[in-house]
Design a protein around this nucleic acid. Structure first.
Length: 126
DNA sequence: ACGATGACAATGC
DNA sequence: TGCATTGCCATCG
């Protein structure tokens, strides 16, 4: 059956995405793709970026959203980049050279199931 | 309608 | 890890 690509209105999508971002607990992070999926909009990672860019929602934790590789999306050195890094560190997130440590930016279902507490432990680096 | 663009993702070397 | 390539999706001129 023909799948429906975008049954939602632009505003609806914006709302869903903002909600998904709000759902990220402090001190934790998520990838754009992850947020998109949690928002019920799989494959729309770029839309998430768009929304965050235009999001003027006060208190929105946009800084907890990273690329799938755990890196900050802004080019290093830019004001936005620096601010994001600081905000993350302020929440106890270890950021090294624009890369987040200690957590997975885009944990897959497999990963969650296959990496229960006590599994392959990546050595802490700091 | 079409091509360019972007706070992206997955894959390959 | 880093860089290049390809795929994706919504927006905009």
């Amino acid at each position: 059956m023909p799948r429906k690509p975008n049954p939602e209105t632009p505003d609806e999508r914006r709302r869903l995405i903002v909600a998904a971002v709000r759902a990220i607990p402090a001190g934790d992070v998520a990838g754009y793709g992850e947020v998109a999926r949690r928002a019920g909009l799989p494959g729309r990672a770029r839309l998430v970026a768009k929304v965050l860019c235009a999001a003027d929602e006060p208190g929105l934790a946009w800084h907890r959203v990273l690329r799938s590789d755990g890196r900050v999306a802004f080019p290093a050195g830019t004001p936005a980049f620096e601010e994001q890094v600081q905000r993350l560190r302020a929440e106890g997130v270890r950021v090294d050279a624009g890369r987040v440590r200690g957590q997975r930016a885009a944990p897959t279902l497999d990963e969650m199931l296959w990496a229960p507490p006590g599994a392959p432990k990546p050595p802490h680096r700091r």
